[in-house]
């Protein structure tokens, strides 16, 4: 069951993965919400509680200018269906949102993972600012393509 990268070519601000799992949603939900299991497959986790607004952290590799602590906050909980949290690297470096969505299927669960917000400063993302950034859409991906 390989995860399929469903990121649309025009979508520069988000990564999307879709995953068909031969397991019931309640089992997948456990893996997404029990710290002992998250430690095992995702990253070492501290302070997690399945409650809205709970702040918690993941620990990953540090690099110059960052100690490797991913600061998270629970944004949305719909038991067995949806879990969303902020995923923040440093203060200004990266401010994204990770969302897991579970849908029961005949054979198990369809898991969709979206990490969104690969763009500057969401806090200022009102009105014209958002429009300005979206306007770049296609051109931006062209540029990103040329950078590798």
């Amino acid at each position: 069951m390989k995860p399929i990268d469903k990121t649309a070519p025009s979508q520069t601000g988000a990564l999307t993965f879709e995953f068909e799992l031969p397991h019931a949603p309640h089992k997948v939900w456990r893996a997404l919400t029990e710290p002992a299991l998250l430690n095992e497959w995702l990253l070492p986790i501290t302070g997690f509680k399945l409650e809205l607004d709970t702040a918690f952290t993941f620990k990953t590799q540090a690099f110059p200018g960052w100690d490797g602590t991913v600061k998270c906050q629970v944004l949305e909980v719909e038991p067995l269906k949806k879990l969303s949290y902020a995923w923040v690297v440093g203060e200004m470096i990266l401010n994204t949102v990770v969302t897991f969505t579970l849908t029961p299927t005949q054979t198990g669960t369809r898991l969709v993972l979206v990490q969104s917000g690969f763009k500057p400063d969401q806090k200022q993302n009102f009105g014209g600012a958002r429009y300005g950034w979206n306007l770049m859409g296609g051109r931006l991906i062209e540029l990103l393509g040329r950078t590798t």
Partner: peptide, 22 residues
Amino acid sequence: ADWLSHYRAFWTDRLGRLDALL
């Protein structure tokens, strides 16, 4: 672009581990 490719690789790896754990 580096961040996007970093997390593309990261999630591909971690979802593989999730699959194994399940």
